[in-house]
Design a protein around this nucleic acid. Sequence first.
DNA 1: AGTCAATTGGTACTTTCGTATGAGTGTATT
DNA 2: AATACACTCATACGAAAGTACCAATTGACT
Lengths: 140, 140
Amino acid sequence: MKKTIFIFSVLIAALLILFQLSKYSLISGNTSLEYIIAGIAVVFFFVGLYINKRRKTHVNISQKEEIDIQKIDALGLSKREYEVLCKLAKGHSNKEIASLLFVSESTIKTHVSNVYTKLDVKRRTQAIQKAKELHILPFS
Amino acid sequence: MKKTIFIFSVLIAALLILFQLSKYSLISGNTSLEYIIAGIAVVFFFVGLYINKRRKTHVNISQKEEIDIQKIDALGLSKREYEVLCKLAKGHSNKEIASLLFVSESTIKTHVSNVYTKLDVKRRTQAIQKAKELHILPFS
DNA sequence: AGTCAATTGGTACTTTCGTATGAGTGTATT
DNA sequence: AATACACTCATACGAAAGTACCAATTGACT
């Protein structure tokens, strides 16, 4: 919001400056007027490009990083369960996840079952689907 | 490419028309000149917005629909194997896929195994990961 | 006609996954 | 101190998934 206000302030300022320039050019002669108009067109064309670029990339970032955390504890997923879910979604087996997190396979099975209950799914492939839909994964 | 050339042609034409308008305004009086300059600024600002929007959405579409087919048979995946892969990625079990495609579970197992070989993976969760990386799925 | 690939299906076996149940430990909250 | 919760682990059983074979059928191409 702050940035939008700032950009529009700059736009208005630029417009005023260009008005002043055009008035001076009327005194000095009409030949340079066309260049000034062309300049205005080019400047505002690129301002349009820039504004849109800013907006789009900002939206993308917010979708990737902000939505995560709220939904995770809205589902009641604990820290450890979420870790397991991430490894699971990367394609690891229970045994592999156990190695990665330095615990037994039994522990992983418990966590995985709890994750399924909380996500309301029956299989790990469904868990991956659901997690992606909810945008609670740090990748993809 | 054609569209880009067309758009820039329109831009140049618009610029020339605005030059003509500005010349007429000099004859009729100086008060309306400021409005014309403001008009030019606004028009080119929105042109900039529009161009960028076009470009971005076009990139998105090409990433969703064009990349698919080439990679599928680059991997050597048959029509049926690809169908099975899609159902699999949606979270269906072998039995469910069998029902959906009106064949036996044995058949699905055969297809699934072949898919794993061709995608060079060991588990169905890895197959989903790989398929998503390769953008060969009709969703997500 | 013969070859090849795709599709279908089966048996048999191993591995992984998922559920149920119980239980010990540690930490934080009341 | 007592309760609640997260994390850990184990056992046992059943259900999926995955592998390794083999085999019949069909359509396309030579």
